[in-house]
Simulated assay, not measured.
Amino acid sequence: MCFALVAHDARKDELVEWVRHNKSYLSDVRIVSTGTTGGRISESFPKLAVTRLKSGPLGGDQQIGALICEEELDALIFFVDPLSPMPHDVDVKALTRLATVYDLPMACSQSTADLIVSGLCGQPTA
Rank of each mutant, 00 (worst) to 15 (best):
D89S: 13
G35I: 02
A107T: 02
G39A: 09
H88C: 13
R40F: 09
V101H: 07
E14V: 09
V101L: 13
R20V: 12
E71M: 14
V50Y: 01
Q63V: 03
V92K: 04
I77K: 00
A7I: 03
S27H: 08
I68G: 00
V32F: 03
Q63S: 08
I68Y: 02
E70G: 09
H21Q: 15
F45P: 02
T34F: 04
V80C: 10
E72M: 11
K12G: 02
Y102K: 09
I68E: 00
E14C: 12
L53K: 03
E72T: 12
T34G: 04
Y102F: 15
G59T: 05
L48K: 02
P82K: 08
L73I: 07
Y102G: 03
R30C: 11
A10Q: 10
Y25F: 13
C69G: 12
E43D: 15
T125A: 15
D114V: 08
T96R: 12
V80I: 15
K54Y: 08
F79S: 01
C2Q: 14
L67S: 04
P87E: 10
Q62N: 11
R40T: 04
K23F: 10
I77P: 01
Y25E: 03
T34K: 01
A66D: 07
A49K: 07
Y102H: 11
H8Q: 07
A7Y: 00
V92R: 05
L15N: 01
R30S: 12
D28K: 14
S42L: 09
P87M: 14
T36P: 03
L83D: 13
V29R: 00
Q62F: 09
K23Y: 10
D74F: 07
I41G: 00
G119Q: 10
I77C: 06
G65V: 02
C121T: 04
V29K: 01
P105Q: 07
A10E: 11
V80A: 10
A49W: 06
R11E: 05
